[in-house]
Structures are given as structure tokens and as C-alpha cells.
């Protein structure tokens, strides 16, 4: 368990309590059955990864948590609240921020409008100044059309805008995909800072070398279920095994 994880003074939430518990989650897109009983849990202040090959169901798991897929069965408890029957727009209000794989920057809005777009879901979010301090590029380009930014800047923007909302748990989907190593490194530093602020983070990641030093635990997915859980401490001994599972 990470010692760096600590909640901010204003949030009375305890570290180590359960933030997210997904049990026997099945998800369907129309007729196709994508998730086949996903089970995992995330503790407050923890950073976990969902690893696996393409099509294993990692992105769908995040979408299913946000109620963005078709039908779902099973159970998803966020911060003690069962959310399976909740409308999609209610889920973020439990303090969840979602960053989609395609980033979802709005072309009809400039950078600052994109940044200010997601409504505040809870108090204690980062201020605009803090966000600009963390992502100086965004400040320089705050009047540009959102989609005119470079890929790295768009990724920064997609993450930055959910930090403003007061979300305490971030679901981040493939944030390093297609980005230059220097940007990936910068994103890694951002994640470390967020963890120090007590954020709970679920990271879907292809780039294992990026995720390995950051995460407390790794969940490996295959065919729509979790097949393996590996803690940071177990990682060195089980690296070979993991590489086999991931096919790298």
C-alpha cells in the first residue's frame, strides 16, 4: 500500500477504505456479450491498472462503470453506493472523473471552455490556477480551439478538465497512447502528484513500462474477465509470467 497516498485535510475520508468494488460485472453491446463477470476492487488513494491485450475488455470495464455501454448486470459499488441502476449523469456526482481513450476534446470550444466544461461534482477540486501551474502549455494555448492542440496537449487537457470537478476517483483510458516519450514521462509525473493528493486512479494502460512504477496493484484481463491480480511487491518475481499473459 502506498505511503504517499494521503487525503487532503478537507476530506474526512480514510485511506484504505474501499472506493470501488466491481462484482460479477457483465456488459453487453446489443447482442454481443463483452464483459463476462469482472471482479476487482480499488481502495481509496490506490492506483491500479487494468492490463491486457486489445479487446480484453479493459476500456469496456471503464465505460461500464460510467454506464456508457448497453446493458449491464452484476454490481458496481462506488464509495459505498450501488450504481448499477443509476442514470449515467448521476455517476460522476459520486466523485468519479472519466477520461476517454479518444480524449473527447470538443472542437466547438476553446481550451479554457473545455477546461471549465465539466460541472463541479464535489468540493475540493483543483482551481484553474493550480491546473495551469500543473499544465503550463494549456495556459499558453487557452484561447485556441480545443482540437488544434497537439496530441499530448489534448491528453493533458482531457485529464486537466476532470481535476477541476472535485472528482476523487479518476478512470483514465490509455492516456499514453500515441504520445512521445517526453510527454509520457510528464504524464507519469502528473499521476504521481495526483496520487500524492490522495486521488484514487484506475488506469487502463498498454504501456506497461509506464504503469509499473506507478501502480499499487495490477489486474490482468482476458476475454472479459480479470484473470490475475499482481501487487507492486509481487511484480519483480512475476514479471516473466505477466509478460506471457500480455503477450509481450
Amino acid at each position: 500500500m502506498s505511503q504517499a497516498a494521503q487525503t487532503l485535510g478537507e476530506t474526512p475520508e480514510r485511506d484504505g477504505a474501499e472506493m470501488l468494488r466491481v462484482s460479477d460485472l457483465h456488459a453487453f453491446y446489443g447482442e454481443s456479450h463483452i464483459l463476462h463477470g469482472v471482479d476487482f476492487d480499488v481502495k481509496r488513494g490506490e492506483l491500479v491498472t487494468l492490463l491486457g491485450r486489445n479487446g480484453a475488455g479493459r476500456s469496456t470495464t471503464l465505460k461500464a462503470i460510467m454506464n456508457m455501454v448497453g446493458r449491464r448486470t452484476g454490481s458496481i459499488v462506488i464509495n459505498g453506493t450501488e450504481t448499477l441502476d443509476m442514470k449515467p449523469h448521476r455517476i460522476p456526482r459520486l466523485g468519479v472523473g472519466y477520461c476517454p481513450e479518444e480524449r473527447g476534446i470538443f472542437s466547438s470550444l476553446d481550451v479554457e471552455e473545455n477546461l471549465l466544461l465539466p460541472p463541479t461534482v464535489r468540493s475540493g477540486g483543483m482551481g484553474l490556477d493550480e491546473i495551469y501551474a500543473m499544465f503550463p502549455n494549456l495556459y499558453e494555448r487557452r484561447r485556441s480551439q480545443g482540437t488544434r492542440l497537439s496530441g499530448g496537449e489534448q491528453q493533458m487537457l482531457a485529464m486537466a478538465r476532470i481535476l477541476r470537478t472535485g472528482a476523487r476517483m479518476l478512470l483514465l483510458d490509455e492516456i499514453t497512447e500515441g504520445l512521445a516519450p517526453v510527454i509520457v514521462q510528464a504524464l507519469g509525473e502528473v499521476l504521481i502528484k495526483l496520487k500524492e493528493r490522495g486521488m484514487t486512479i484506475v488506469l487502463v494502460e498498454q504501456n506497461f513500462r509506464f504503469a509499473a512504477p506507478l501502480a499499487d496493484r495490477h489486474f490482468v484481463m482476458e476475454h472479459g474477465r480479470i484473470i490475475e491480480e499482481i501487487s507492486a511487491a509481487e511484480l519483480p518475481a512475476r514479471r516473466e509470467h505477466l509478460n506471457t499473459l500480455l503477450g509481450v
Partner: peptide, 8 residues
């Protein structure tokens, strides 16, 4: 869909 995921 993304707007819903932001709580709108």
C-alpha cells in the same frame, strides 16, 4: 455520451 459522463 461524454457530457453525461461529466454529470450533465
Amino acid at each position: 455520451a461524454l457530457m453525461q459522463a461529466f454529470g450533465v
